[in-house]
Each structure stands twice: as structure tokens, then as C-alpha cells.
């Protein structure tokens, strides 16, 4: 006999599926459903979203049956620096241009690790930028402006 156990990971997982399924269900209902014979844009996604909700509920129910491992450590510092890096690149690549945008993107990402020293980060970002400009901008000829209107005089 098993004692009353609870797998928190799977409980969260099931809940996430149900919430996502709910979101897609809600969105699908705002679309034209059509009929099975002549499906509208909402028909197929609604079907999938409902399947997702059901599967989420199954995971949720199963989570109450067995004990599982806990979530473990979460890379908060990693998320704080890794995830903004591409966003920063997206926000600035047109304005600042390829060279400065890439330099700062690499610099931001460098701080994701607690082992990174500031001087090392600067050098690394400069090296990455130099390499990328040579390879991507000159050699491969990607159509990026090296310096954008924000830094042009």
C-alpha cells in the first residue's frame, strides 16, 4: 500500500497544461468554428485545446498518486541575464546597428554566470563582436547595418 503522496512537479505540470489549454480554448472560441464538413479557423485548434485540457487533468490526477522528485534549484541568475540578451538585440539592432547591439548582447549574457569577472566579460564581448562582424557582416554579407541611425553623426 502506498501512503498518501503528492508529486508537486506533476501537479504544476498538469495545471500548466490546463491553463494553456484553457487559453487556447478561449481564443479558439472567438474564431469562426464552422462545421466538421467545412471547418472554420477555430475548429481544429478548439479540438486540440480541449485535448490539452483533458491531458492536463490526467496529469493532475496522476500527481496525487505517486511521490516525485522536487523541482530542484532554479537558475534565477541565468534567467535574469540569458533571456534578456536576445530581447536587447531585437530592441537595438535597427537603432544602434549590428556592432553595438551585438556587443551589449554578449555583455549581458556574459553576466549570467557568477564566475564571470567584469574585465573578462568586456574582453569576451569585444572578441565576439569582432569575430561576428568579420564572419557575418563582411564574409557572409548579411544585410545588417553595422552602425544604426542612433549612433550615426
Amino acid at each position: 500500500m502506498k501512503s498518501l503522496a503528492f508529486d508537486s512537479t506533476n501537479a504544476i505540470c498538469g495545471a500548466v497544461f490546463v491553463i494553456l489549454g484553457g487559453f487556447f480554448t478561449y481564443q479558439s472560441l472567438t474564431l469562426d468554428l464552422g462545421t466538421a464538413l467545412r471547418m472554420g479557423p477555430g475548429y481544429f485548434p478548439l479540438l486540440l485545446a480541449l485535448i490539452l485540457v483533458v491531458l492536463g487533468l490526467v496529469v493532475l490526477v496522476q500527481s496525487t498518486r505517486v511521490a516525485g522528485e522536487p523541482l530542484g534549484p532554479i537558475a534565477l541568475r541565468g534567467m535574469a541575464f540569458i533571456l534578456p540578451a536576445p530581447v536587447f538585440f531585437g530592441l537595438t539592432v535597427r537603432g544602434l546597428g549590428f556592432v553595438p547591439a551585438l556587443f551589449f548582447t554578449a555583455l549581458i549574457a556574459a553576466f549570467a554566470s557568477s564566475r564571470m569577472k567584469p574585465t573578462m566579460a568586456l574582453m569576451l564581448a569585444a572578441a565576439i563582436t569582432l569575430f561576428s562582424v568579420v564572419v557575418f557582416s563582411y564574409a557572409l554579407g548579411l544585410p545588417f547595418q553595422r552602425f544604426g541611425p542612433w549612433v550615426r553623426f
Binding site: I82, P86, T105, M116, A125, I128
Partner: peptide, 19 residues
Amino acid sequence: PYYVLFPIIMAFCSIGVYS
């Protein structure tokens, strides 16, 4: 060391996806 590797990957990913 991956604290060197990861910024490189992030830079290339950004370029690649944008390209």
C-alpha cells in the same frame, strides 16, 4: 568553461534567428 561558451552561443543565436 561555459561562462565563456554561453555568451558566444547567445550572440550567435541572436544573429542567426534575426538573419
